[in-house]
Write a protein that binds this DNA or RNA. Structure first.
Lengths: 210, 210
DNA sequence: AGTTTTTACTAATTATATTAGTTATATGAT
DNA sequence: ATCATATAACTAATATAATTAGTAAAAACT
């Protein structure tokens, strides 16, 4: 009954297996659809039997939930990385919309899991929702900082929500119609500059001529 | 081997059963999620055994496909009904966006089936896609008629696609955040007037002062 | 009354998620 | 080197699902 502390090597091994499972799950979701993930197929590709997976995850729900957190974390990093190059409100606007779409195109399975509802039985856990709220809230705060520069009566939240809705709308349409085309191209991708100019016109920067 | 023509009564009965199945399927989809529709549950609620359903539909896919067509047809009627009251381009714009959202709220299961991708295994048949394209195309034509009145460089298709994307974005966000609130209310519902004024500002009506 | 069609059924096949119980092995302590 | 334990795999079993095949009763037409 001695509580042996797990050896570092074993822990690394276990961690590696878990990452392997998650990546394999993502591959399946990308190839066959998010909701088509099956423990059998996952085990098959891992050269395992399905029950063995339960040594690493309590079930399919926990795999989805983990990937939900991975998705939001990656999305956050994705946007943060692009944001570094930003110098103006207009830049931020463009980066938010393009970044949303490029994230969706580069990680379709994570995008769907996080921003659409492809698995009716899956509801993110409280902790996972906290993660997503935290990321969204930082977006709000960022917008608040710019608000005073803008000639608009909208609140910070209204600005962010509008941008989110438009990003999501363009992305969802792009993905369901022309998922093979890169950001900025195709029927909906090419609308990004259009909506940007519409938004900029309605939220002009104080002191500039638009 | 005589080919007996089916009696009118039998045909009515059969038609009634089919409608019953479709309505029961919609109820299940509304209650448990679009992708959670199961032949077993469907049969259970119809007081049948699952295999009996195959006398009416070739399988779950055909049920989805039929409801896909029902959804687009209903959507078309929904918008057409609201459009009757329209007198101006601004009206059309508002009705399109509000109509999209009210349709989604009143028929969440049809909305998801038609405008989201909740069932990875389900791909609409060619005929069903024709129905949906036909309805969309009429939208394009309607926009073209208004285009010459507008002070905008956008093409008719760009106008319609922008409106679709925005309608969809607002609706998807509304549904996933506050599905219980009616059109026009809540974080995203209340953004409808906001985006309308943004759009109207960027696509002014010729000869009017905006 | 007899034939055909319709409609429901049961039984069987295949695939799925998950649990329980078992066994082999790697690790750490003696 | 040996023993105990924790880990990680396995097989077997349960329950549910979609679908197919084959069958039996009833309805409807001739």
């Amino acid at each position: 009954m001695k509580n042996q502390p797990t050896s570092p090597r074993r822990q690394r091994n276990r961690e590696a297996t878990i990452q392997n499972i998650l990546n394999t799950a993502r591959t399946i979701m990308r190839e066959e659809g998010v909701a088509a993930l099956s423990m059998q197929e996952l085990a098959r590709r891992m050269d395992m039997r399905a029950p063995s997976l339960y040594n690493y995850f309590s079930g399919k729900a926990e795999i989805y939930d983990t990937l939900f957190r991975v998705g939001f974390t990656r999305y956050d990093e994705h946007i943060k990385g692009l944001m570094k190059a930003s110098t103006s409100w207009h830049d931020e606007l463009r980066i938010n919309i393009e970044g949303y779409m490029s994230f969706a195109l580069e990680n379709p399975e994570l995008y769907q899991l996080c921003f659409e509802h492809p698995v009716p039985s899956f509801v993110p856990s409280q902790e996972s929702l906290q993660v997503s709220f935290g990321i969204l809230n930082r977006s709000y705060q960022r917008a608040e900082r710019f608000k005073k520069e803008l000639g608009t009566k909208l609140t910070g939240q209204q600005i962010v929500d509008t941008i989110i809705a438009i990003s999501h709308g363009l992305t969802a349409m792009h993905i369901s119609n022309e998922p093979h085309l890169p950001v900025g191209q195709g029927r909906f991708g090419s609308l990004i500059p259009v909506v940007l100019s519409i938004l900029e016109k309605s939220m002009p920067i104080k002191g500039e001529n638009n």
